[in-house]
Amino acid sequence: MNSDELDVKKITVMLVDDHPMVQGGLRACLSFYEDIKIVGSTTEGKEALNKALELKPDVILMDISMPFMNGIDATEIITEQLDDTKVLIFSMHDSAEFVTSSIQAGASGYILKDTTSEEVYYAIKAVSNGKTHFSSSIAKVLVESPVRAGNEKLTTREQVILSYIAQGNSSKEIARKLNISFRTVEAHRRNIKAKLNIDSLAELVRYAVNHGLVES
């Protein structure tokens, strides 16, 4: 097996952070993992859009506070244009406002800059596999933020579908995984929102985390 074949199995990662020391630290800690390959980096959100379209990485490690375009706006545009690229927020901000805005923008996870290198690696692996990952303190923020929930409980099928939704799967993807029709998934999605009195994806993810339906 040649080196090119080995590269195919690596998770390609792009770094977006306006602090060179942070990028240097990430490169150093991720260099120990043979299944991670950093394919590019940039220091601001607007340039991240062009590089993401060019490189199409599996995962983008995205800061929030950056010049020209913040990471949340960049995340929203990137996730709309690149279905196979997952964005993992890597930030010092731990407020509910930043967390929920990031999730609404399409981020698959949110970890803090004081996290360990092992968790950074685990988070990259998780989101690259279509899951979500939140630092424990971020998961706590989601749990403690009030969720508008009704009294009706979800059925087992609805819980499974909500779990897939919270992991970033589209209705089409959920239908394929559960071997049911797209229309059935959409009907379940409407029922879930009605039962929980929830409209936004951020609140659905928060509910899923709070009730153990998604990994944190």
Rank of each mutant, 00 (worst) to 15 (best):
S3R: 15
S3I: 15
S3M: 15
S3H: 14
S3E: 15
D7L: 15
D7K: 15
V8H: 14
K9H: 15
V13F: 08
M14T: 08
D17A: 12
D17I: 08
D18E: 04
H19A: 14
P20L: 10
V22C: 06
Q23C: 13
G24C: 11
G25F: 03
L26D: 02
L26R: 05
R27C: 12
C29L: 13
L30Y: 07
S31H: 13
S31G: 11
Y33P: 07
Y33W: 10
D35M: 13
I36E: 07
I36K: 07
G40H: 12
T42H: 02
T42C: 11
T43V: 09
G45C: 01
K46T: 03
K46V: 00
K46I: 02
A48V: 03
A48Q: 02
A48Y: 03
L49V: 08
K51H: 09
L55S: 07
P57I: 07
P57T: 09
V59S: 06
I60S: 05
M62P: 04
M66T: 02
F68S: 03
M69S: 01
N70Q: 04
N70W: 02
G71D: 02
I72W: 00
T75K: 02
E80L: 10
D83K: 15
I89C: 03
I89E: 06
I89G: 01
I89W: 03
F90G: 01
H93T: 05
V99F: 03
S102Q: 03
A105E: 07
A105G: 03
A105S: 09
S108Q: 11
G109L: 06
Y110T: 05
I111S: 00
L112T: 07
T115Y: 06
T116Y: 03
S117R: 09
Y121Q: 10
A123S: 10
K125D: 09
K125L: 13
A126Q: 14
A126Y: 08
V127S: 02
S128P: 07
G130Y: 04
K131F: 10
T132Q: 06
T132W: 03
H133G: 03
S135M: 09
S135R: 04
S136D: 12
S136F: 05
V141T: 11
L142I: 00
P146R: 01
V147G: 01
R148N: 13
R148V: 05
A149D: 02
G150Y: 02
K153H: 08
L154S: 06
T155N: 14
Q159E: 15
I161R: 09
L162W: 02
L162A: 04
S163Q: 11
Y164D: 11
I165M: 02
I165Q: 01
I165H: 00
A166T: 01
Q167A: 04
G168C: 08
K172L: 12
E173W: 05
E173A: 11
I174T: 10
A175Q: 12
K177H: 12
L178P: 05
L178G: 06
F182H: 13
F182T: 09
F182K: 10
T184K: 14
E186A: 05
E186T: 07
R189A: 11
R190F: 14
A194M: 14
K195W: 08
K195F: 10
K195P: 08
N197R: 10
S200E: 06
S200W: 06
L201I: 12
A202S: 14
E203M: 11
E203K: 04
L204I: 03
V205K: 01
R206Y: 01
A208T: 00
A208P: 02
N210K: 00
N210E: 00
N210A: 01
E215N: 13
